[in-house]
């Protein structure tokens, strides 16, 4: 009869965390920054059909990095919960905070109880009626929930990107200033990213009820081209 080896709980958690972190670091990073009209979300994504940033509800967006099938399942969970909640209560009752809590529960539960943790890091962003009520919830693979202010960086190389953002970012930027800053932070000093390499979306207070909208490649190109980056 096989005897299972004893593994210390600390070791087990560390192994799982390492596993998840490795999976996430393989993917490309994503940046969310506050700007004058709301929140700008930018990620490296060569695909034009498989999205990493999407709409959850009127004022809420979702972004995920890591394994696509895993964060997409979480995205669908978010859309469904938001729509059912808005249907049975009111559109005003759907908020990012409770959704972020649900995500934290799912990720935390999976991390400790399932065979394999989810190799994802996700962001739930909500644009408020004014900049002081904008919210960015960053949820890690183990269910750690962080309420971030101003900017949020997910995925591999997050620290370096966040570092670059601290010197260049300002919440007062208009879209045509905020986008080049976010793209430059994602790219780093040695690379140039073109409109084709990235996926861009905004949650804008100017968009009416559904604040979420994607920026087409042509729009992104126009902004990046004119800023001279």
């Amino acid at each position: 009869m096989n005897m299972p080896f004893y593994v210390a709980p600390e070791q087990m958690m560390k192994d799982r965390a390492d596993f998840a972190r490795k999976g996430i670091a393989r993917g490309r990073a994503m940046v969310a920054v506050q700007y004058a009209d709301g929140i700008l979300l930018v990620t490296e994504n060569p695909s034009n059909t498989l999205r990493k940033i999407s709409e959850i509800y009127d004022r809420i967006a979702f972004a995920g990095v890591g394994k696509y099938n895993e964060f997409d399942q979480l995205r669908r969970f978010g859309v469904r919960n938001a729509d059912v909640k808005g249907y049975s209560y009111s559109r005003d009752d759907v908020e990012a905070r409770s959704l972020a809590n649900d995500y934290a529960q799912i990720l935390g539960q999976t991390f400790t109880h399932e065979l394999k943790p989810l190799e994802v890091e996700i962001l739930v962003a909500e644009v408020g009626v004014d900049p002081s009520t904008d919210q960015l919830f960053h949820i890690l693979y183990d269910g750690t929930l962080v309420d971030e202010r101003g900017t949020s960086v997910l995925g591999g190389d997050a620290e370096a990107i966040a570092e670059r953002l601290t010197t260049t970012w300002s919440a007062a930027h208009a879209l045509d200033q905020a986008l080049p800053v976010a793209v430059a932070a994602l790219a780093g000093p040695d690379r140039q990213l073109t409109a084709d390499d990235i996926e861009v979306a905004v949650l804008s207070r100017r968009n009416g009820r559904r604040c979420f909208s994607r920026l087409e490649d042509a729009d992104v190109e126009a902004i990046l081209g004119s800023s001279g980056s």
């Binding site: 999407s54 709409e55 959850i56 859309v79 729509d83």
Partner: peptide, 8 residues
Amino acid sequence: EHYEKLDG
């Protein structure tokens, strides 16, 4: 709206 969001 639900379909549009889920299916893109």
